[in-house]
Computed example of a mutant assay.
Amino acid sequence: MRTFFLALTVLTASASHVLAQSAEAGERVYTQCRACHQVGETARNLVGPQLNGIFGRKSGTIEGYNYSQANKNANITWDEATFRDYIVDPRGKVPGTKMVFAGLKNPQQVTDLIAYLKQFDATGKRGQ
């Protein structure tokens, strides 16, 4: 019985380690986004909108970016759960989006990317 609880403890510790967020790892994942999106104090819209302050923001609302009607009308307020759904399958979450990225399938990479993006407030300053 003691062996069972020891094994359970080790598995639980391993699982929580895998799910831990790493902004540093997320910055490496973000390199896949960088061709179309920017973050930081000098961020601007490119092929995609800049991503400063994305969490808490309503979809389709960055000034100066020409969103698809699908994104404008999606009525999404970005939080971790909605972003996770979107980044895994953008066209599945918002059919008709202009985003051509096939999706980020690795759950740990998604978690790390979220940690990285959460650092940037709406002005692009790193807050965390």
Rank of each mutant, 00 (worst) to 15 (best):
Y65G: 00
I87W: 04
G103D: 04
I114P: 07
V94C: 05
G64R: 05
K105R: 15
G92K: 14
G56I: 08
G92W: 06
P95N: 11
Q69A: 11
A115V: 11
G53D: 09
K105E: 12
Y116V: 09
I76L: 03
N73K: 14
A115Y: 01
Y86L: 07
K93T: 09
G103F: 14
Y65T: 05
N106K: 15
G96T: 06
Y116S: 03
R57A: 13
K93E: 12
F83C: 00
A102L: 12
I54M: 13
G103T: 09
A102R: 14
G53Q: 11
T97W: 12
E80A: 14
V110Y: 05
F83K: 00
G96W: 13
N52L: 06
Y65E: 03
I76Y: 01
Q69Y: 06
Y65Q: 03
V94S: 05
D85I: 01
A115S: 12
I114Y: 12
P95V: 07
A74P: 03
F55Y: 13
V88F: 11
T82F: 01
Q109N: 14
G56M: 04
A102V: 10
G96L: 10
P90W: 12
I54V: 14
K105N: 09
T97M: 07
G103V: 10
K98I: 07
A102G: 11
G103I: 11
I76H: 00
Q50P: 00
A70D: 00
I114L: 05
K72A: 12
D89W: 15
T111H: 08
Y116P: 02
K58T: 15
Q69M: 05
D89F: 10
D89E: 01
T97K: 10
A74E: 02
G56D: 06
D112V: 11
K58A: 14
K58L: 12
T77D: 00
S59W: 07
Q50E: 14
R57F: 10
Q50A: 10
D79Q: 02
G56P: 07
Y67C: 07
Q109L: 00
S59N: 02
T82L: 07
R91Y: 01
L113C: 13
R91D: 04
L113T: 06
F101A: 12
F83R: 02
E80Y: 04
I62Y: 03
T77H: 04
D112Y: 09
G53K: 07
A81Q: 12
G60V: 04
G56C: 04
N66F: 09
N71T: 12
I87E: 05
Q69W: 10
G64C: 11
V110C: 06
T97H: 10
E80G: 11
Y86F: 15
T111R: 15
W78P: 00
T61S: 13
K105A: 12
F55K: 08
